[in-house]
């Protein structure tokens, strides 16, 4: 996982970098499986690998990225990046060594024992989410919904020249709207001249077709 995470930032080709990120997600999911969090592991693959990264890959493949220009700013941005990275490392160690910092008094930690005892941690997770954490959970989903709608509103623009369809209209169309039947006398030697008259009359009725 460390290798693939490292390759995410060192791969020269952005598409390769994205694929290594996918690999990193897979490894993370594997680690979670080993920690008996099968719901989280599978949800990680389903959401991140299956949906988010695919769209990410779409975007990266579409972009025309100039690698040389990106490389230029490396040393200039390093201090900022290192600071953010350092803070994240500190946070992670705080959580992982939580027992020394008194973090294990949170309800999630207490319910953890119950979950492992029961076997199916999907059920346990759902029970906690919809009882102890119902308000934070609902709040998070509302925030996500707002984000979705905001993203759509920001990018949605009605193009004037678009040839959008109205399927309801298409279905409601009748034969008489599209085809007009013209009655004609059958063709024989004697009335061939009268046929051309009828044809002329028909084109006239249409509003004069080009000859």
């Amino acid at each position: 996982m460390l290798f693939s995470a490292l390759r995410v930032i060192t791969a020269s080709n952005p598409v390769h970098a994205v694929l290594f990120l996918v690999l990193a997600f897979f490894n993370a999911a594997g680690l979670w499986l080993l920690l008996q969090a099968e719901f989280l592991a599978i949800a990680l693959i389903m959401v991140y690998v299956g949906a988010v990264m695919v769209l990410f890959l779409f975007v990266v493949m579409m972009l025309d990225i100039n690698i040389e220009r990106i490389r230029q700013g490396f040393w200039r941005h390093l201090p900022l990046g290192a600071t953010v990275g350092g803070i994240m490392v500190i946070e992670m160690t705080t959580v992982l060594t939580g027992m020394y910092f008194g973090l294990d008094n949170f309800p999630a930690q207490l319910a953890d024992a119950a979950a492992t005892a029961e076997g199916s941690n999907t059920k346990a997770l759902a029970r906690i989410l919809f009882t102890d954490y119902v308000y934070p959970f609902e709040l998070a989903s509302v925030i996500l919904l707002v984000a979705i709608i905001a993203a759509v509103m920001l990018t949605l623009r009605e193009r004037k020249d678009t040839k959008g369809m109205r399927p309801a209209d298409q279905i409601a169309i009748k034969r008489s709207d599209r085809v007009r039947l013209v009655k004609m006398a059958s063709v024989t030697e004697s009335n061939a001249s009268s046929l051309t008259d009828t044809l002329d009359a028909a084109t006239d009725a249409k509003g004069g077709a080009p000859q």
Binding site: I42, I45, M46, G50, S120
Partner: peptide, 25 residues
Amino acid sequence: DIDAGVLYLLAIGSVGVYGIIIAGW
């Protein structure tokens, strides 16, 4: 016979898209 069988199917099924994208690219 895993407990999260349906989730497993959905998750692995969504990985199949990568084969197509990678091949296309």
